[in-house]
Design a protein around this nucleic acid. Structure first.
Length: 567
RNA sequence: CGGGACGUGGCGCAGCCUGGUAGCGCACCUGCAUGGGGCGCAGGUGGUCGCAGGUUCAAAUCCUGUCGUCCCGACCA
């Protein structure tokens, strides 16, 4: 590609709205432009990089026997009502009506459509297993899109769905897909970790997330320094709990005028937050519930939801809190309230703690579980925090930020049951198909690659996803020798199948160097002062390593670089 | 949804407090010059100051509303 003909509007300065590196660099390199919040156009250079990532995904999917399909973006409401997600998915599902006033939505994911497709075509165990995937645009009406391609409303996703005859076969498919995912992100040049994860609205029994390690990641991942345990903080189990040996003291009411938060109460009573118990009131499937966690712990609603096995869980509104406790918000406690109490495991071992007295401006001191109130369920309902130990081996844990680039779910029969996707087994008996689902955020993967591969001058593309592998940079096109050689090299390299970006612009060398660095093409060939001696310069973007070589050794040198990499 | 900020040429910003000629850098155009890191000189194009209403002799500037964008959180996953 000739730079002068290429639609690549590079920017010296990035728009102020771009906060993180990948977003700034993608804008500056002329890869993307924003149309509106969370909605982007892909320019040629950006699309080329996207395609590179997609093709890695395609190769690895095809290698494990998955087949590519393309499913509709606009989906009828009926299908979503059947699965129950029309009501459950919430505002992220963009709903629209057609001219006949029929309800539709833009697909945020495609379990319904694919299951619907398969249920009509699969009759017998002989038709299984089946593994289908697609790469196309999804729409999720995110509450807060941010960070460029990192969290968009409209985004490119690879989503795959597997269909197996039973759990065992599904398990095997899951493993194969998991390994394919590892190969994909390896080939993309990402530093990543696989963690146990929450399943969210997709549902299913368990899942793993593929997390690109990055400080700008929106998730926190926890992993053990000692063993292989790794989990999303949403999911990470807490197993270490201590039991206090303190003697029980008589309960005592104290006047705490206006002191509501843990912070206020600790400073007023001059105690540590670990002496306090927070009482959080919820409506669980509409019924009131008190959840207890220690003052220095944070409640994890996903864990609570899972423990309760309920459909909905919402914080109780202030008027309900007042009704239950008989006090203003901020003075709730477990003693003397007449609703179901669920407590974190840590509460079990606590003695003489402080909590609200269910009376405005009062707290109780020296509360003891069992003696002063009864807990219906003890369980792990809090977030893990720094200092907690590995639930597997008791080792020390590390906390890092991660970008969720891939997510694999074992769905089981959630959708096949809802949409009645069945087959006849060998004995002629009807069985539900066992499903799995596998997603990769393509744009987000590209953003993660740039987050992990850049310097102060710009992007440093790994060869595997670089939109071009070679940047041909003639210093001065008015010098006939340089011009002729550049044209010759460009022609020859293209004939040899190399993808070359030829900077044939009549601009100062500085501009070309800056753009070359910004765009991040792995190999730069510079034609300039050494040409008089029949030599050219080859420079690697990543290492900065520069070699001056005779012109006739160019192809040999390139072959070596492609063989041994650009590091 | 709560909190905060912003909207002035394609991009980055100043001007607003204290109302009175719309300004700077980059980009762009022309010419000259230059050719190893966003190079120099000279000249030039382009903005009803997000939109609507109000106050005023006069509004980018003050007031009200509205739309959009970004950040933090909540929510969602």
């Amino acid at each position: 590609m000739r730079f002068s003909k290429f639609f690549i509007p590079t920017l010296k300065e990035a728009p102020s709205e771009a906060e993180i590196t990948s977003h700034r660099l993608m804008l500056r390199a002329g890869m993307i432009r924003k149309l509106s919040s969370g909605i982007y156009s892909y320019l040629p250079l950006g699309l080329m990089a996207i395609r590179k990532v997609e093709n890695i995904i395609r190769e690895e999917m095809n290698r494990v026997g998955a087949q590519e399909v393309l499913l509709p973006l606009v989906q009828p409401a009926e299908l979503w009502k059947t699965s129950g997600r029309w009501h459950r998915y919430g505002k992220e599902l963009l709903r629209l009506k057609d001219r006949h006033n029929r309800e539709h939505c833009l697909g945020p994911t495609h379990e319904e459509v694919i299951t619907n497709l398969v249920r009509y075509e699969v009759r017998s165990y002989r038709d299984l297993p089946l593994n289908l995937y697609q790469i196309h645009t999804k729409f999720r009406d995110e509450i807060r899109p941010r960070f460029g391609l990192m969290r968009c409303r409209e985004f490119i996703m690879k989503d795959g769905y597997s269909f197996d005859i039973d759990d065992e076969a599904a398990e095997e498919t899951y493993k194969i897909m998991y390994e394919a995912y590892e190969r994909i992100f390896d080939r993309c040049g990402l530093v990543f970790r696989v963690v146990e994860a929450e399943t969210g609205t997709i549902g299913g029994s368990f899942s793993h997330e593929f997390m690109a390690v990055s400080d700008v990641g929106e998730d926190t991942i926890v992993y053990c320094k000692n063993c292989s345990y790794a989990a999303n903080i949403e999911r990470a189990e807490v197993k270490n709990y201590s039991i206090s040996e303190e003697k029980q003291r008589p309960i005592k009411e104290v006047y705490t005028p206006g002191y509501k938060t843990v912070e206020e109460v600790t400073s007023f009573l001059n105690v540590g937050p670990e002496r306090i118990v927070k009482t959080i009131l919820y409506l669980s499937d509409g019924k009131p519930l008190a959840a207890l966690v220690r003052g220095d712990h944070e409640i994890n609603e996903s864990k609570l939801l899972r423990l309760l096995g309920c459909e909905s869980l919402n914080l109780a509104p202030p008027d309900v809190i007042k009704e239950i406790t008989g006090a203003d918000v901020g003075f709730a406690g477990p003693v003397g309230i007449n609703i179901k109490i669920v407590a974190d495991n840590a509460i079990k071992g606590m003695r003489n703690f402080i909590s609200g007295a269910n009376r405005t401006d009062y707290h109780f001191m020296n509360i003891n579980p069992g003696r002063d109130f009864k807990v219906e369920i003890f369980g792990d309902i809090r977030f893990i925090k720094e200092g907690d130990l590995c639930p597997k081996c008791g080792g020390e844990l590390e906390f890092k930020r991660g970008i969720e680039v891939g997510h694999v779910f074992k769905l089981g029969t959630k959708y096949s049951k809802a949409l009645r996707a069945t087959y006849l087994d060998k004995r002629g008996k009807e069985q539900y198909i066992v499903m799995g689902c596998y997603g990769i955020g393509v744009g987000r993967t590209l953003a993660a690659i740039i987050e992990q591969n850049h310097d102060e001058h710009g992007i440093i593309f790994p060869l595997s996803v670089a939109p071009f592998s070679i940047y041909l940079l003639p210093i001065d096109l008015k010098d006939p020798e340089i011009l002729n050689t550049a044209e010759k090299i460009y022609k020859k390299l293209r004939e040899r199948g190399f993808d070359v970006l030829y900077d044939d612009r009549d601009v100062s060398p500085g501009i070309k160097f800056k753009d070359a660095d910004l765009i991040g093409i792995p190999i730069r060939i510079t034609l300039g002062r050494y040409l008089k001696e029949g030599k050219i310069e080859i420079r690697l973007r990543r290492s900065g390593e520069t070699r001056i070589i005779p012109l006739n050794e160019l192809e040999l040198t390139l072959e070596k670089i492609f063989k041994y990499g650009t590091h």
